[in-house]
Design a binder for these strands. Structure first.
Lengths: 249, 249
DNA sequence: CCGACAGTTCGGCCCGCACCGAACATCCGC
DNA sequence: GCGGATGTTCGGTGCGGGCCGAACTGTCGG
């Protein structure tokens, strides 16, 4: 009975359009200031400030005050995973797109994006499929990283952190593809390496990413991934939105 | 931006104490009538009826009308999994127990219970640990059912459905133990077999289960599980609550 | 020291919605 | 067909909370 109280309180944090928008924005694993979140959600700053209080007090977000800025980020990978799960669950009935720009953004998001700290969209699913096809991961009984997979990643230069209690790899239901992509330590390591090696880069300021020409070759040669074509988008479209800044070293 | 709308709408379904209580009740994978849910949540029937409408329209619950009864159940395993995930996330800060009876119920729930259609609590975690210890499942790289595991289950007489798209096995973070127990097809098969073979039985009308004496031997001999002691509880404690009925064949 | 900027606090408005009682609609058992 | 039980519909009430503008605090830059 008192569990219900806690569950309801937790859900209430997401049960508001503005807070939901803020949480989804934070899913890009970067820290946003209150002002940026306010612009993103389309509310005044006092309102966003109150929402920020509730998200932090409710344990959904962490704050990081620095000078006159107050940065918000998600409280942790568990929160991100949960938000993604809920999003995928909700996704089926999504509203029709109203403008060319929105459709363009949607195409970019669907093609390749980050999901907290790993790859998602057509690209993310393609990576998961390629690793399964080459035997780097095995889905016949559960989900496991094979010895060949470890060797492959070692050759590519992807290190897997072993000191964390986080699952090594886990399926994350893709929001647009409705099929699983890879999360966990493995998913994060691949994504990080793809950024570091210049295989991918952000489109504008959102979660969408673009595969670079060199990246397309690298994905194909080193991971056996057939990279889907990326529509790309002039960054100007995003210019109206507040730009989140990265603070973590 | 319109994702936020959907996410908020979904969360709003759970963002009410009464609806949350109803959903948690439905987690026992049985069908409850509106009246039972009303008593369980402590609200009048008209209120519960409206809540039922919203849960069904929102896709969280399915309804099944039969005569003058209207049975509610969770919409599916995905919904159950999501609810369990959220519950585990929320659990850490749980309120202190106010009565002896509540403490008793809590002990029973913590010892052994069902989580939708698989085993949870100390028992559920013990099963997962035992399968890992005997090499039936492998956690070194992801989570897989080994050949030995398949053989073991075959000997015990547990059949694994292969026609479903549901994951064969997956970790489900335990609400009380804060460690994973087994869900998915495997978790459901083990739980079903434990009921069918008389290894476990329900305590009262809730989610709590008790390991029978024969069951304790069977768990130990056939699955290598050291069964934790079950406090057991006189069913009378539960008598005040409305009793859910099982309708599925 | 002073403007500009980021964020917070406060007061007030208003909408949504959870809740109930009463009346109504169904269905069951006798 | 007649109670009695299960649910639903309909008004009405009250509370919570989302929102904003205005005033205030604190920080950075010069």
């Amino acid at each position: 009975m008192d569990d219900a109280e806690g569950l309801a309180a937790w859900a209430a944090l997401l049960a508001d359009r503005s807070r939901a928008a803020m949480c989804l924005a934070l899913l890009d694993n970067r820290a946003w200031t209150v002002g940026e979140l306010a612009r993103h959600a389309g509310v005044a700053m006092p309102t966003a400030s109150e929402h920020a209080d509730r998200l932090v007090n409710g344990g959904l977000a962490a704050e990081h005050r620095q000078g006159r800025h107050r940065y918000l980020s998600l409280a942790g990978p568990e929160v991100a995973a949960l938000l993604e799960s809920v999003s995928s669950q909700v996704a089926p009935g999504h509203a029709p797109l109203r403008s060319m720009a929105a459709a363009h953004r949607m195409r970019n998001l669907a093609a390749a994006r980050t999901c907290y700290d790993h790859l998602a969209g057509t690209l993310g699913v393609a990576v998961a499929d390629a690793l399964a096809a080459t035997g780097a991961i095995d889905r016949r009984s559960g989900l496991t990283l094979t010895g060949e997979g470890r060797a492959l990643l070692g050759n590519v230069g992807i290190e897997l952190a072993t000191t964390t209690r986080r699952p090594l790899l886990r399926d994350c239901l893709d929001w647009t593809e409705r099929r699983p992509h890879l999360g966990g330590v493995l998913g994060a390591a691949i994504c990080r390496h793809a950024f570091d090696a210049g295989w991918i880069g952000r489109i504008g300021t959102g979660r969408a990413v673009r595969v670079t020409p060199a990246g397309a070759d690298a994905f194909a040669d080193q991971l056996g991934v057939v990279v889907p074509s990326t529509p790309d988008t002039p960054g100007a479209i995003y210019a109206a939105r507040g730009a989140p800044r990265v603070i973590n070293a």
